[in-house]
Nucleic acid binder design. Structure first.
Lengths: 150, 150
DNA sequence: ACTATATGGTTAGATGTATAACTAAATAGA
DNA sequence: TCTATTTAGTTATACATCTAACCATATAGT
């Protein structure tokens, strides 16, 4: 029982992706203050870029994490005073997440922490290559995403 | 304070990588028996492909995980009887990891579990694209890897 | 209108991985 | 040779994320 060459390729691909994810998330986590992680920053970034007033499930879907995970992430952000979570008038089951002023300030501060590392990477990473690869990654992500439920 | 377009690209790239990692590892984890994860299978796969008798630190470096992480992963594999960890005669500080027969058998069994999913993905994934992207991923991984310690 | 199903969210529990701090052994430099 | 530094590994601890099970509310089918 062996894997075909194509299956080995898939495995190798996911292996590289896993390592890059590990290295990059460790890199970013170290830049954030104690107790705050990539995931918290990402949520603030998402709400800043695309607008707040979204439900937890919408946010969970955007990052492809489970509902308990987003509950946990949001509760940390609430404890830090970076978001407010209020009942949704339109739907009694759900809630809406809003950024606070402190949350917006923290987001700006976090970005300023990231910049020096980004600039260091700029000297080494091949942006043209990354830009070319990105659409392929998006397609692969979409396929995996569609595949996972049935 | 804003990110440049290039910095946004880097962020978007790592974001896609993170999501793909999450989806793929969840996919594979579900295929393995209760209590065994991607990480355990990967170690067995590594030792099978490249030969056993390696030290824990060598294995940790191959997957870019920390020493406590590999200690934990190996202890699970030892508990399951899939590897033996013995003192290294050549270096009193270190140990050597060997596959057991049960470990080899489990590895084969795990592969047979993966095959149907792999075949399902074969119908959807673009292997040519993945093969083209892979070398770029390797280069990016190597840059991140070099960058992380200094 | 009522019941069954689907959806949003939380709680409980398990586990993988990280950092910090430690011990033991090897190596390098005076 | 002796000390200082590096390297291998473990232990303690924190935390993000997962699955399973649950409650509350909304929607659909009869």
């Amino acid at each position: 029982m062996n894997l075909s060459d194509e299956q080995k390729l898939v495995f190798q691909f996911f292996n590289e992706v896993g390592i890059i994810q590990q290295l990059s998330s460790t890199l970013f986590n170290r830049l954030l203050p104690k107790g705050l992680h990539n995931s918290h920053f990402s949520v603030l970034n998402h709400l800043t870029r695309l607008g707040d007033g979204r439900t937890p499930v919408e946010i969970a879907r955007a990052f492809q994490v489970t509902k308990p995970t987003i509950t946990n992430t949001l509760s940390t952000l609430v404890d830090r005073g970076f978001v407010r979570v209020v009942p949704n008038e339109k739907d009694g089951r759900s809630k809406l997440v809003f950024l606070t002023d402190a949350g917006r300030a923290f987001h700006l501060d976090a970005i300023s922490r990231l910049v020096p590392t980004m600039q260091r990477l700029e000297g080494q990473l091949d942006f043209a290559a990354m830009a070319k690869v990105l659409p392929e990654l998006v397609r692969i992500r979409e396929i995996l995403d569609k595949d996972r439920d049935p």
